[in-house]
Amino acid sequence: MAVHIPSHLRERFDALERMPAASGLPAPWIGPIVIAVGGLTDVGYGDSSDLLICVSSNGRSVIDCLAGGKVARDDGNDFTFDAGNLLVGGLGPLADKQIRTAGLAGGGLPSATKDGWSVQRHPFAFPDEQVFVAPPGQAMLWTPRGEEMNLTKLGGFITEIRTFGFSPTGLSFVVATSSDVIIFSRT
Rank of each mutant, 00 (worst) to 15 (best):
A2L: 15
V3E: 07
V3W: 10
H4C: 12
I5P: 00
P6V: 10
R10G: 02
R12L: 03
D14W: 07
M19Q: 09
A21Q: 07
A22Q: 08
A22S: 15
A22F: 01
S23A: 09
S23H: 10
G24Y: 02
W29C: 05
G31C: 06
P32T: 03
I33A: 03
G38T: 14
T41Y: 09
D42H: 04
V43W: 05
D47P: 14
L51V: 11
L52W: 09
L52T: 09
C54Q: 10
C54H: 06
V55E: 05
V62T: 08
I63F: 04
G68I: 11
K70R: 15
K70V: 15
K70M: 15
V71M: 08
R73I: 15
D74P: 03
D75C: 10
G76T: 03
N77E: 11
N77Y: 14
T80F: 13
F81T: 09
D82H: 12
A83C: 10
A83H: 12
G84M: 10
L87P: 07
V88K: 04
G89Q: 14
L91R: 05
L91M: 12
P93A: 03
L94F: 11
D96E: 14
Q98I: 05
I99K: 01
R100D: 02
G103H: 01
G103S: 00
G108Y: 13
G108C: 06
P110N: 06
P110W: 10
A112I: 09
A112F: 12
A112S: 12
A112G: 09
T113P: 00
D115E: 07
W117Q: 01
H122L: 08
F124N: 06
A125R: 07
P127A: 02
E129P: 03
Q130F: 15
P136C: 08
G137Y: 08
A139E: 12
E147D: 11
E147Q: 15
N150Y: 09
G155W: 11
T159W: 10
T159Q: 05
T159A: 08
E160Y: 12
E160V: 15
T163H: 05
T163Y: 06
F166H: 08
F166R: 04
S167A: 13
P168I: 07
T169Y: 09
L171S: 08
F173M: 09
V174M: 10
V174F: 03
V175H: 00
T177D: 03
S178F: 11
V181Q: 04
I182N: 04
I182M: 13
I183Q: 01
I183G: 02
F184A: 05
S185N: 15
R186Y: 06
R186W: 11
R186L: 04
R186G: 03
T187K: 14
